[in-house]
Amino acid sequence: MASGTAINPIEQFELSRWVPIHVFGRDFSFTNASFYMLLSVALISFVMIVGSRQRALVPGRLQGMAEMAHDFVADMLQSTTGKEGMRFFPFVFCLFMFILFANVISLVPYTFSVTAQIIITVIMSLTVFFLVIIFGIAKNGVHFFKLFVPPGVPIYILPLVVAIEIISFFSRPVSHSVRLFANMLAGHITLQVFGAFVLLLLGGGFWAAIAPLPFVMTLAMLALELLVAFLQAYVFAMLTCMYLNDALHPGH
């Protein structure tokens, strides 16, 4: 962050092309976002692969982390979708870990927040959305559309209920993606604004005396953002599990 010049809280979300790549007139440049995506993947792989390498009966720290992550996602998926849902375990696990690691890495100053890019969260939520539709129809056929017809609804308000169900189904990817995106975006902007406020006060002569106040606030916000980072990864994975459950058991 350039001190002295005006501090722009939006600047942190800008992409920069580190290695420009253009194929067929399209821009596939390797950017800072690409780097942090691959960094997340590398760190997850380190924890999971190196952690499970020794196959110890009594786990060490790294293996404990790997097992904890495995169990956390497995329990979440199994409790929502039952045994049949476990075929999606690697997918849900990757989603959860990718979001969690991207979120946490982005809290380190001067890094980049991958999950504050709406295109990334939209791709993830659309993948879940189409996975639910394709798998749901492939597995249940026409039965899948029972999802829009809740049982035990009187016939005269059924059209209204079905309309609402359909609208809510198609708005899922929107809320699914925007929730994560907005949380990360807002958190990072808040952090940046409070951080900038500290600098502003320090440069303001007499006002430097109260500069510690926003600094303490920044620390508190950082703790909150750490919680949000985990919580949003959990919420995204949990909603994925619930949507997958609809594909597996559309009857209820």
Partner: peptide, 16 residues
């Protein structure tokens, strides 16, 4: 930046 973002996300997620 969307093409680049989508491309690198797909690459990263596929590797993962």
């Amino acid at each position: 930046h969307y093409p680049s973002q989508i491309f690198w996300f797909v690459v990263a997620f596929a590797i993962l």
